[in-house]
Write a protein that binds this DNA or RNA. Structure first.
Lengths: 171, 171
DNA sequence: TATTGTTATACTCTATAACTATA
DNA sequence: TATAGTTATAGAGTATAACAATA
């Protein structure tokens, strides 16, 4: 892409390289991690993220909306995934006493067990691919840079952020 | 995930944070960029990558295999995407005189035009999301760290790296 | 036989819109 | 009316295996 046009705006060669590096590293990392999760636990990365969030939540419970917010996907997409996890006995769903509209998702022991089973390999993958090649100070540097970027991203809705049934002001 | 088990091996809280940051940043970045490409040029990120690679290649030509290697996907997946791009007149495909098995993919002027048209916005997205929030020195630091990681990844086949065509041993 | 690429096919995933029900 | 979630459905994308053709 370096020579696309003579007036390619904006990105210096270094920036372009950094951008490509981010995308390639994350792509390969996700590919490897996803493959491992599927092989070890028959879980997609999304499913693993859902379970991991639940395992980390107080009492292992979260509302559907909380999960949807975290995993970015649409509500119907989450319903689909939750249906699969439910069918496998990895989670349960029950309506909340406080608000009958709300569905509370809870990880089952089986779900916890599965997470515990795939986690070591998952972590090992991440370590091998992401952290092993790093030099001293790299971790701190990466954390700081990406921390800043992430904070900025979170504060800046993508543009056409469609909070589905939300968004009232702010056109 | 911090408290998954008492003996979660491997990753320190800082490493876990960095890992999550990498995945979240890349995910949001790709989501935003993909949305822009679709809106501006009716191109998926994968399709854009194919075109961008071609635009950057000598004479705007690459073999199918070269493209498949770069985009990671399966050969049939590339054939599918190439079919879509071909149908839209953004690329052409012709067999190589050197090796009749080989299909050479070439970007058309139309394809170049489309890339040129969506590139400014694409670049602007990347700048806004990835580089604007960075502090002085962040770019260099990120490049160095991820450069190392990427080099390591490239040198280390994921695992059962598909030998491209077949696999006979290893079940 | 090995390699390049296509095709047929089945499947996973995601998004949209319509719908139910609760608040 | 607004929110939480589901369902119906349709479409994009991907992987696998069988296939044809060339080396």
């Amino acid at each position: 892409m370096a020579g696309v046009t003579d007036e390619t705006p904006g990105l210096s060669p270094e920036e372009l390289g950094a951008y490509f590096a981010v995308m390639e590293v994350s792509s390969l990392l996700q590919y490897a991690v996803d493959a491992h999760l599927r092989a070890e636990g028959d879980l997609s990365y999304v499913q693993f993220q859902i379970l991991a969030r639940l395992v980390d939540a107080p009492d292992g419970r979260l509302r559907m909306t909380d999960l949807a917010d975290g995993v970015v996907y649409s509500r119907s997409g989450l319903t689909y995934q939750a249906g699969l996890l439910d069918k496998r006995g990895l989670i349960t769903r029950s309506s909340s006493p406080d608000d009958e509209r709300v569905i509370v998702v809870t990880v089952t022991d089986s779900g916890r067990g599965l997470v515990a089973r795939v986690l070591p390999g998952h972590v090992a993958d991440v370590r091998r691919l992401l952290f092993d090649p790093m030099a001293t100070g790299d971790l701190a540097a990466l954390s700081e840079v990406l921390g800043r970027v992430r904070a900025h991203m979170r504060a800046t809705p993508p543009r056409s952020a469609k909070p589905r049934a939300k968004r009232r002001g702010a056109g």
